[in-house]
Design a protein around this nucleic acid. Structure first.
Length: 452
RNA sequence: UCCCCGAUAGCUCAAUGGUAGAGCGAGCGGCUGUUAACCGCUAGGUUGUAGGUUCGAGCCCUACUCGGGGAGCCA
């Protein structure tokens, strides 16, 4: 499918996207997933298995076709395959995918087959390219790829509801005398969960190896039913020693630009498909982002802009309140019309580990907001001062004992450091223009749904 | 979890409370250059589930299930 010059003898294996039969010959378009483009094979009726086999080839049939690659006399393709041998691996009676358009909802119900569609072939090729670009970006900058645990026994990662991991019999778990479940008899000797973030682990590595990043599955047991939430998703979390909040913003901006630039360079056919069929502005948006500077403003400045906007929001704007979706959308979609990085949020609406600013009212937090998706990156400079961190734990009613290993990093040679988390699927969603995050991952896991 | 909308053929959708249809897809036939090909024929339905109102319900009412959009939580 990578289009060698005409005249070559080639063999292609793949799945038929569409077949058109007429009296003397058939057109069979084959796709093997390497590109969104099909290879059109012309199968003459003089082929020995024409009547018995070729004539019955339809959408979904898997085939091997050998022939000469020739210049195509028809419009729509440069080359075509003049078939000399056609082998059918398997027919596909009642194949649910048609050659005509399907709704994303229907395709989601047949997720085990939807990779055979143009849209999902393109999605998964772009997903792959973005994953490749993530590693390329960090490896070029001497970051170490760190594998943080997926199962965690610390119940204090503090980023939302967690899935429990246990081998205890749910019908008759061992119990204490007071009736509560005895988790000391569980597999790990204590309660365990799936990770909601590798950040705290990554911090311990950053304070030894300087530059690290994670890229792995993340699990949130939140009952979130939206177009931008998954119960199982992939997150990228760089963590860098000796970085402050400004370095963190620089890193986030160049990181996003690198990923989008890579997609534009390496997936032009797929991006053209998204622009044609999914979101008209898909390519323009990415070009715009690669070429322009992100707008940076503080939370306080953002509140000011919202107050002066003259807009009536459903949720009134007030310093100290968390920004609602409608506020974020106004800022990134209407006010600046590109990504915006907000910093220095009130400490009461952010996590305990974010570094307290000198005003003692705000923390060095950073959210990257993009049009349509909202928050795509959340990060901060971390609180490296032991006494301040302990004070923040107390304020938030968190137990210093639970975090003793984390606090050790501040006890022993602490250093300023910063990092962020990027939602991989949200980034795919943004780049492709897809409306629902469930279409960015092969088999989406959401509340009430873990099919396939 | 809350609010709104929806569910009719494999898919996308029609059908004033009165005999459930079309296009596409599929199967068969036709067609010598097609491109979401084209032309003809055929098959295909417990109208999401359970109740209720009515002489009569795809249509009205109630509950539930599933799906979609928005909100919250966040990445």
């Amino acid at each position: 499918m990578n289009r060698p010059k005409a005249g070559d003898q080639v063999t292609t294996n793949g799945w038929v996207r569409t077949a058109r039969h007429s009296k003397g010959f058939s057109f069979v378009e084959v796709n093997d997933g390497t590109t969104i483009l099909n290879l059109q094979a012309v199968c003459d009726a003089t082929l020995p298995n024409y009547e018995a086999t070729i004539k019955h080839i339809a959408t979904g049939t898997s085939v091997r076709i050998t022939g000469e690659l020739v210049d195509s006399p028809g419009k729509g393709q440069k080359y075509e395959l003049r078939a000399s041998d056609v082998h059918v691996y398997g027919f596909a009676p009642d194949f649910p995918l048609q050659k005509k358009g399907h709704t994303m909802e229907f395709l989601r119900e047949i997720a085990h087959l939807r990779s055979r569609s143009n849209t999902f072939g393109a999605v998964f090729r772009v997903r792959n390219e973005m994953a490749r670009a993530v590693h390329e970006f960090f490896q070029q900058r001497d970051f170490l790829y760190l594998h943080t645990p997926i199962i965690t026994a610390s119940d204090c990662e503090g980023a939302g509801a967690m899935f429990r991991v246990t081998t205890l019999d749910p019908d008759k778990p061992p119990r204490h005398k007071d009736g509560s479940i005895d988790f000391t008899q569980d597999f790990f000797g204590k309660t365990a969960h799936l990770t909601v973030s590798g950040q705290l682990s990554a911090e311990t590595a950053a304070l030894a190896l300087s530059r690290v990043y994670t890229f792995g599955p993340t699990f949130r047991a939140e009952n979130s039913n939206t177009t931008r939430h998954l119960a199982e998703f992939w997150m990228i979390e760089p963590e860098v020693a000796f970085f402050d909040i400004n370095d963190d913003q620089d890193l986030a901006e160049s990181f996003l630009k690198h990923i989008f630039k890579s997609v534009l360079e390496h997936c032009p056919d797929d991006m053209k498909f998204f622009a044609d069929r999914i979101e008209k502005s898909a390519i323009d948006t990415l070009n715009h982002i690669v070429e322009s500077e992100f707008v940076r403003m503080t939370y306080t400045e953002a509140i000011d802009i919202l107050l002066k906007s003259g807009r009536s929001f459903e949720f009134p704007v007030k310093w100290g309140c968390d920004l609602q979706s409608e506020h974020e959308r106004y800022l990134t979609e209407e006010h600046v019309k590109r990504p915006v990085i907000l910093t220095n949020y009130p400490k009461d609406i952010k996590a305990f580990y974010m570094r307290l600013n000198d005003d003692e009212k705000t923390v060095a937090a950073m959210d990257v907001l993009v049009p349509r998706i909202g928050e795509i990156i959340g990060g901060s400079q971390r609180e490296e001062r032991l006494d301040v961190l302990e004070q923040r734990l107390r304020e938030m009613n968190l137990s210093a004992e639970d975090y003793s290993w984390y606090l050790d990093t501040r006890r022993f040679g602490t250093a300023p450091h910063a990092g962020f988390g990027l939602g991989f699927e949200r980034t795919i969603q943004f780049a492709t223009g897809l409306g629902n995050i469930r279409d960015t991952i092969p088999f989406p896991r959401t509340p009430g749904s873990a099919e396939f």
